[in-house]
């Protein structure tokens, strides 16, 4: 959190996510699809997703302390949250990411 950024009026904190997957494994493929579906209702600029393939960048997961795949990290807003699994249990995932209320509002 840099001081100049905090001065910017943030109506809605930007959602920054990082998804760790292992290549095209079934769980990883499912997680990618499930995350896209969950975020599909949001305007493209309101979130940011980085996908890290552990098979291509193996040391990143180790350095981040991620040991199961897939793992979804909510980097921002704080507090940091960790969700593991294929993200098929969308209720759990939405709640953990803090999406539930917004999507309910929209409905």
């Amino acid at each position: 959190m840099s001081p100049d950024r905090s001065s910017v009026p943030a109506e809605e904190p930007r959602l920054v996510l990082r998804l760790y997957v292992a290549g095209d494994g079934p769980n990883s493929t499912a997680a990618r699809a499930n995350l896209s579906r969950l975020l599909g209702t949001y305007p493209p600029g309101s979130y940011e997703v980085e996908v890290v393939d552990c098979l291509r960048e193996p040391m990143r997961a180790i350095e981040e302390g991620v040991f199961v795949t897939p793992t979804l990290l909510r980097v921002s807003p704080q507090p940091r949250r960790t969700i593991v699994g294929s993200l098929s249990e969308s209720m759990n995932v939405s709640a953990a990411l803090g999406l539930e209320r917004s999507s309910a509002d929209r409905a």
Partner: peptide
């Protein structure tokens, strides 16, 4: 040393595996 404990605050959202860790360990 790799700390591979799954924190109690971790939320489970479906099926997962240890493929990512093994890939990291292989590199290490």
């Amino acid at each position: 040393f790799l700390d591979a404990r799954l924190s109690s605050t971790v939320i489970q959202g479906g099926d997962f595996d240890i493929q990512g860790m093994l890939a990291g360990l292989a590199a290490k």
